[in-house]
Every structure is written in C-alpha cells, then in structure tokens.
C-alpha cells in the first residue's frame, strides 16, 4: 500500500525537518544578537519570509501539477492529488504568513494590519486558495473534480500577478510602500543571514514532509472511495433487493454515487 522507499524518505525528511526547525528556533531566539534598529523584533525575520516563501512554492507546485493533469499526455490522477495536497499545505503557510506579518506589524508599524501591497495580495491569495479547496469539496466524479480544480488552480495562479500589480498601484499611487521604508529594513549579515538561510531550508523541509504525508492521505482516500464504489456496484449487480451495505458509506460517497453519470 505504500512503498518502503517512500516511507523511509518521508521519515528521513521528517526527522531532518524537526532538527532544522529546532535549530532555527534556537538560533533565531537565543544565539543571534538583537538588531541595532529593530531590537528583538528582528527575530521574526527568521520565520516570516521563509514561511511566505513556502506558501508561494506550494502554489507554484499546485499550478505545475494542475497543468500536468490538464495536459492530456501527462494526465494522471496523481497530479490532481498532488495539486490538492500542495494547495492545502500552502493555505496553512499563507495563514502563518499573515499571522506572523501581523504580529510583526503591530510593534513595527503600530497597527495589526496595514493595506500594504504585499500583505493585501497575500490576504487575497489566502481567500483564492480557500475557494480552490472549497471547490474540491463539491461532489463530482474524480475526473470532473480534477479538471475543475486544475482549471481553478491555474486561474488563481494567473490572477496573482494581476492582483499584485493592482494592489501595488493602489498603494503606491498614494503613499510609499511601508515595508520598503529604508529605516525599517534591517541590515542582514553574518550570523543573521545564516539563520535566515537556515529558516528557509528548514521550512522547505517541513513543507516537503507535509506534502508527502498529505499526498499519501489523498491517495488513501481515493483508494477507499474506489473500493467502496466497487463494492456498491457489486452489491447492486448481484443482490438487487439488498439494502444493507457492509461498508458504512460516508455522505460524500453517497452523493458522488448519485451524481456520477456512470
């Protein structure tokens, strides 16, 4: 049900990411010195940009996987499951980007939220992919769901630069971008740069581990669905009067069964 190699790779990545995150926390919170300008607040720099990077990476992978599903030559259910898994992990990391950004903004700018271009784009990105995940929950056949969500995933990705451009203009035509304010941007060097790099690597590993796990779960769910559908078909074929089913059906399956035009 799960190849040994996949399992061991996943475990290794899991252990490495645990160690890396622990190192990032230790370096970020205790070993690096406080910044001259920002004081202790600079420590959030070791987690916020890496988390944001992972969110973008996750959406990038969702779009690539969606494209591979839509392209008939590479069409495979695996790409759909990969796209879905990556999007879910991406939504988690986007939420964390917003939360850490907000926590940083409060002491740095004096407000929890500012209509900064990047912050606003990230918020819209969050909602866009929440919509993608909601669309996936719509009952449909596997292929139907895969095509629809792949298209939705691609549209969302195409929309990101447009959204970003519009928000950048919206803000910069009226006031300077707050994030790029030179007095606030920290000078990063030495130990700090190393810790930031460590942050990027460790959260990327965390993403890889989560993706592998989520992908496997998606595979299991797909398999269970197939088995249950097989069973329903078989029971209907062999015992037309029989109502009781051995496997307890989840409501989703019932709906899918009713919706599918097989």
């Amino acid at each position: 049900m799960e190849s040994k190699r996949y399992k061991w790779t996943r475990r290794a990545i899991g252990i490495v990411s645990l160690l890396l995150v622990a190192a990032t926390v230790i370096f970020g919170l205790w070993i690096t010195p406080p910044d001259v300008v920002q004081g202790q607040l600079v420590r959030l720099i070791y987690v916020h940009p890496p988390v944001a990077w992972v969110a973008y990476l996750a959406y990038g992978i969702t779009s690539i996987a969606s494209t591979l599903y839509l392209w008939k030559r590479t069409r495979n259910m695996k790409w759909d499951l990969l796209a879905a898994s990556s999007a879910e992990v991406g939504v988690i990391f986007t939420a964390l980007t917003l939360v850490t950004g907000s926590i940083w903004g409060r002491p740095a700018w004096g407000v929890w939220w500012t209509w900064d271009a990047r912050l606003t784009t990230t918020a819209l990105l969050f909602v866009l992919y929440l919509g993608y995940l909601a669309l996936r929950r719509v009952p449909a056949t596997s292929h139907q769901r895969a095509v629809r969500s792949a298209i939705a995933g691609l549209i969302a990705f195409v929309d990101v630069p447009i959204v970003h451009q519009s928000v950048v203009w919206w803000r910069t035509l009226h006031q300077g971008a707050t994030v790029l304010n030179p007095s606030l941007s920290p000078k990063i060097h030495g130990e700090m740069a190393m810790t930031l790099l460590l942050g990027f690597i460790s959260f990327t590993f965390v993403y890889a581990w989560m993706l592998m796990h989520r992908y496997q779960i998606a595979g299991f769910e797909q398999k269970i669905l197939d088995i249950e559908l097989d069973q329903i078909l078989e029971e209907r074929l062999h015992e037309p009067g029989m109502e009781s089913m051995q496997v307890e059906l989840s409501p989703d399956v019932e709906q899918i069964d009713r919706h599918s035009k097989v």
């Binding site: 909602v127 719509v138 009952p139 629809r148 298209i151 549209i155 929309d159 959204v163």
Partner: peptide
C-alpha cells in the same frame, strides 16, 4: 461565466460562487 460553470452542479453553488468570484475579480 467561467467560475459559474466551474461551480455548477454543486448544491453549495450559491455560497461557493461568490467565494470564488470575488477574490478573482477584485483587481
């Protein structure tokens, strides 16, 4: 039109469509 077609056939369409469409058309 594209999003409405994407969300069609779902019972939750009335709530799903605005969720999908409003962020996309925000620009």
């Amino acid at each position: 039109v594209m999003y409405s077609q994407l969300a069609s056939g779902s019972r939750a369409k009335q709530t799903l469509l605005p969720l999908l469409l409003i962020p996309v058309t925000s620009p």
